[in-house]
Simulated assay, not measured.
Amino acid sequence: MPKTETDLQAFLADTGIDATTARHPPLFTVADSQALRGNIAGAHTKNLFLKDKKDNFFLVTVDEDAEVDLKQVHHLIGAASRVSFGRPEMLMELLGVIPGAVTVFGLINDTGARVKVVLDERLMDNDIINAHPLTNEATTSIRSSDLVRFIKATGHDPVILKVTA
């Protein structure tokens, strides 16, 4: 059973990470979430759950306005081939979330560290980063340095790369 938003908040607290969460109606796309600008400070994320032909999985987290060249990103992230979006079943199995709620916080559910996490370096230039806390009905704000701490605490080794133009 995937971890819940409550489990995530407890994990963050136990790890000594300060986070604030704002509730809102469900948001399924970046366009939906842009309606909240001004209410929640900091950078807002777009998350791409990708796989290559050898069933290696990647979570690429970038700023919501960033563009990722899906025909070329495999060269940057160490994929065995060009990538495609991972199937919803694998998204649920590995990150414990549904399409429309993909989040870097889903790494808490990837206990086998099967997903390689890639953070765009331009996103990481922001002091505060916002992501869904395992549900698209809320946004959690966290310091960029604490996001790296969170990822490491889940057993993943975050890679920070320039993946956007």
Rank of each mutant, 00 (worst) to 15 (best):
A43Y: 03
L119H: 02
K3I: 05
I98V: 14
N47I: 03
V30F: 04
E64D: 10
S33I: 05
V104F: 02
I129G: 00
A101Y: 04
H44V: 05
T140I: 11
D127A: 14
P158N: 07
A153I: 04
G112M: 08
L161C: 06
V115C: 05
V60M: 03
T4L: 10
E137N: 15
D69F: 13
L94E: 00
S84K: 09
P99F: 04
A131W: 01
D14R: 15
M1N: 13
L48S: 06
T164A: 09
L123N: 01
D127L: 14
M90G: 08
D125L: 13
K54R: 15
N56I: 14
N47Y: 02
K3Q: 13
P25A: 14
A35D: 14
F49P: 03
L59S: 02
H24D: 06
L76V: 15
L123S: 01
N126P: 08
N56C: 15
F58I: 03
N130L: 04
I40M: 06
A22Y: 15
R149C: 01
A66K: 08
A131V: 03
K54V: 07
D32G: 06
G78F: 07
P99G: 06
A101C: 09
Q72D: 15
G42I: 06
K152H: 10
P158G: 05
D69A: 14
R143T: 07
A66F: 03
H44L: 10
G155Y: 05
L94P: 01
K71D: 15
G112N: 12
V68H: 00
P2R: 07
A66G: 10
P2D: 10
D146G: 02
A31W: 09
T4D: 06
G38Q: 12
K116H: 09
A165S: 12
A66W: 00
V62F: 00
G78T: 14
T6W: 08
E89M: 09
G16Q: 08
L12E: 00
V60R: 01
D52G: 12
G96H: 00
R23Y: 15
P158Y: 02
G86L: 05
S81D: 08
A43I: 04
S144G: 14
A131D: 08
D7H: 09
L70P: 04
N130G: 00
T140S: 11
D157T: 14
N56E: 13
D65A: 14
M92E: 15
T135C: 07
V104P: 01
H132N: 12
